[in-house]
Design a protein around this nucleic acid. Sequence first.
DNA 1: ACGCGTTACTGACGCGGGTTAGTGTGGAGG
DNA 2: CCTCCACACTAACCCGCGTCAGTAACGCGT
Lengths: 347, 347
Amino acid sequence: MLPRRPTSADVAARAGVSRTTVSFVLNGRDGAISPATRQRVIDAASQLGYHPHAPARQLAGGSSQTIGLVLCQSPEQVAGDALLADTLRGMTAAARLAGFRVIVEAVEPKGGRYADLLRSGRTDGLVVSGPRVDDPELRGIVSDRFPVVLQGSLPGLDVTSVDVDNRAGARGAVEHLISLGHRRIGCITNAPLAYTAASERLDGYRAALREANIEPSPDWIVEAAFDAQSGHRAMARLLAAGEFDAVFVASDVVAFGAIGALRAAGRRVPDDISIVGFDDIPLAAFLDPPLTTVRLPAYELGHAAGTALVDRIGHPGPPRRTLLATELVVRSSTGPPRSSTIARHAH
Amino acid sequence: MLPRRPTSADVAARAGVSRTTVSFVLNGRDGAISPATRQRVIDAASQLGYHPHAPARQLAGGSSQTIGLVLCQSPEQVAGDALLADTLRGMTAAARLAGFRVIVEAVEPKGGRYADLLRSGRTDGLVVSGPRVDDPELRGIVSDRFPVVLQGSLPGLDVTSVDVDNRAGARGAVEHLISLGHRRIGCITNAPLAYTAASERLDGYRAALREANIEPSPDWIVEAAFDAQSGHRAMARLLAAGEFDAVFVASDVVAFGAIGALRAAGRRVPDDISIVGFDDIPLAAFLDPPLTTVRLPAYELGHAAGTALVDRIGHPGPPRRTLLATELVVRSSTGPPRSSTIARHAH
DNA sequence: ACGCGTTACTGACGCGGGTTAGTGTGGAGG
DNA sequence: CCTCCACACTAACCCGCGTCAGTAACGCGT
């Protein structure tokens, strides 16, 4: 049998001091400890391979040095979320800076329980990603003043949140299409409109058209849902609804499917129709044609959420809302409309 | 100020019993508790909104009910890992079945520290994903008998591991090419060969060729590294090395880049050259052409790793090695070689 | 009336470490 | 020589909960 893990008492015995002294040395309260003693303690600890017992420390000290990431996403969403890995990386990096770890909890969008993470003291705070408006748990923990950061946004709930500026991003994408000369511009959403990100992006699309005095008919807008399959179907419906110069697809993954549908219908991108995506997933640049899209700073998003949460745990304060900027990445899936191409050739 | 969180003593007082009784009721040791008392305790707990303090429970009981997932991956790898989300989902699901949570720790491949998660008692076990052969931490925690499950495999280390059968999967993919009539079959690896998954897949490729009495020249094999960009470069090198009927690309993401290079060189897939990928990422079916690939059961992999670890925490035993089967998914990026097509036309 | 289980509960200790209120010692100042 | 204080350290309590070893009350057989 292995010797049981060493405790601070073992270190104390070995160094010939009290447990209190060990605690002082190892936690930097060295003010009153002589250098010689301090060194003895440090040596003893390292010889024994001493690691403080996190739960005991938490019990005594109160903080778990852990934050939770709650993913309120259905399986299809998670699988399709090409940026989750990056967001997670950003969040763990931010957490580590403050000495925190990250617990990940994937819950079903409805009825998933996660508040226990907080109430049981396993985590000091939570980043909640993509909750529904009617999330029952969220209101409870917010009104109990637990530190929570929303990744995404939820109208009508006054919580600290971090999100990307979906509206401005979408608007920029559509303005790009308009500036190329397109007028009949369709829109395929990234998700049902109950998801705020989806409705915000749609909003940006509408704003850009309005500004250009273009009135979109209702059948210019089709809802898709997360995966390429749904994008394929959505584009098929759009094609059935009429002719388009361009389509703004509010998700690269969905755009993959949409472009597949165009290919199947014999339309060429961008010669016959221009496509702008959203997210800039790693493969967007390698699609045929390379996809013009709106870059969503996934790592930064995770990092910002983690930082905001850790910050909030340290010094509670009023809710703050952070919006990260997106960036339009122009590749080859957008170009001038066919008519203007012809005009240019005729010229 | 909010009232502080209720403790089991508060519940005991409210129910008019001792703390011990509360503990017995709430932990199912009801054998000696009368139904009336038991109900009083349960009511009191729910009225107070009592949640046991996890760290205190762990300190008393010994188990953290938490497992760790350690990702030994560089940023590019993580970003490119389209299946990570699914694997993570599988692992958290497996953990939840046993009442465990999951802490995720992303560490740099070299020098990243994660053993502290175990030594500090924050987790009861670790799933280590993709460590290097020379990982310094791993040997330590293994020889200290901590419960560890390797996701992937590491020759020469006797640890419980869960992996996909890379060799058989690659072999099946190449056999598929051979059965179509291809002979000159190149290979682009998914990663440097220091990664066992990469060398195993290469092994499978070699085995299939050997069985068909094909001797690959060294310049049929080119190393890539995780992302599409590297696949693009690798394919360019392959094209410079000679003509090929087909190429086995040991990663779908890399294959995306490789196909891009073929397109740039004016070769058509599968008419001029067939391509088989590996992983079956969600977008593989939506590539142009839809990619024939080897399905890697990501969710199941995570689930198996989680289950194996939890199992091992419960009842330690000798290391076990689990290999999950892959499945060849034939789509449209593979077809008969040009010569045979011509032959068929001539016929 | 007494012993002897059961039944239904409780007292007290321990998990490992943070922390507060001390304790003893030596040296400087008066 | 005594006082006083900074110095270097320690005893003891606390965090919240699990759990073992009781204990009191009660019923039953003789």
